[in-house]
Write a protein that binds this DNA or RNA. Structure first.
Lengths: 215, 215
DNA sequence: GTGGCAAAGTGTACGGCGTCCACAACAAGC
DNA sequence: GCTTGTTGTGGACGCCGTACACTTTGCCAC
């Protein structure tokens, strides 16, 4: 592999970087990871890529454009985290129970990601941007679905197994997402920011149960 | 009243402003109202107050300090909006129903404020800052309670009237707040940002019902 | 090969931001 | 009326995003 890609230092033999877009994106993701959306600074990204500030404009129209790129990647990471949690969910022979476990795994994965990757999580939702039927593959996980779509599939399974009446399926994404996202916010930047892991875990389970009962 | 307070223009006869702190705060609130937290720019606030940038540092330790002040005011506005909605809630002779109406009014007031004053709303929750048992009077409404405390009172009434089992009272604030705040987010910056008023209204009622059933 | 061209970097510069320091205008008390 | 502490001014610094003009480079047609 080309040596300049590995080294973070601004040591670059060739004039051309080769894959600057990717390097900037990765630097931006790094910045977002520890520091949130505010920390995604165009000049710093170029510095880390060992390149002049203006070089970024060959690959991104603006700072906001770079941030949107980082954001898309953060959403994809979230999708992966949810998928991982789904894969690790307890199996069940009974379809209804399995579907329920599945939905809970989605919520748990969402919350786990919010807590362990709070910088990326905050970045993912810092800028208004449509997600729902967005086919942008930069935002999807292994399954090719974005987080919103993963949630949709989980709800569909709930309907198929008779747990959720079909009449209440429409818009159910929004109810579930509201509750879980709200809790994530309270923990990250709200009054629950000082709560212990145990308290948080207990609350998370209550919220998931509330969603299950209240859909 | 002193003439320099009314005029926005940097026409100021006297060297001393007189009430610069207040003027800066009001300018900051104005900025936040249309533009959100990002728009609260220290230099612009001083410009509107007709004063040199550095003058702000006599009253605020930093830009963040000013932002916190604006934020406190935004929270107070939210409290007032909720109180107004409570006052306008349908009355009922039956205590249980009255308590339920009361809680719904809290949620509705919260969402209404988020939608009609989105800049202030986003500012209110942009910076991590404890609220729950915060006695800071800058954040309270007419009743002397901050939004979180108002919600707490509503839940207490639910327990008193037997609607909510006492065992489930602890931490119920967080469940309710999660759901409503999450919905507000989805509408303001998430996938529901393009939804019609009717859709939003319907979803809001569903979320409130979910909370009621799921607490 | 070589000449030319588009693509991808660099350099310089501008205005805006938050903030620091030294200084000037003022209000109040001795 | 002079002193002293408070409050506002002026100028400067180092960041930021971004525009414009320039150079270096890879590549393709001849």
């Amino acid at each position: 592999m080309d040596p300049q890609k590995k080294s973070r230092r601004p040591v670059r033999r060739t004039f051309h970087h080769g894959s600057l877009r990717k390097a900037l994106l990765e630097a931006g993701i790094e910045l977002a990871r520890d520091g949130g959306p505010q920390a995604v600074v165009l000049r710093e990204a170029t510095r880390r890529a060992g390149v002049a500030p203006n070089a970024a404009y060959r690959h991104f129209a603006s700072h906001g454009d770079l941030l949107r790129g980082v954001r898309a990647s953060a959403i994809a990471s979230l999708a992966l985290a949810i998928e991982a949690e789904i894969a690790a969910a307890p199996r069940s022979k009974r379809p209804a129970e399995a579907a329920r476990n599945n939905l809970r795994a989605v919520g748990r994965g969402y919350l786990k990601f919010a807590l362990t990757e709070s910088g990326l999580f905050r970045t993912a939702f810092s800028v208004p941007d449509r997600v729902e039927n967005d086919a942008d593959s930069a935002k999807t996980g292994r399954s090719g679905l974005n987080p919103f779509q993963i949630l949709g599939v989980a709800l569909d399974r709930l309907v198929e197994t008779g747990v959720l009446p079909k009449a209440r399926r429409a818009g159910a994404e929004y109810l579930a997402w509201s509750a879980v996202h709200g809790l994530a916010y309270l923990i990250l930047e709200g009054p629950l920011s000082g709560a212990s892991d145990k308290e948080i875990h207990a609350l998370a389970e209550r919220v998931l149960k509330m969603v299950e009962n209240g859909l």
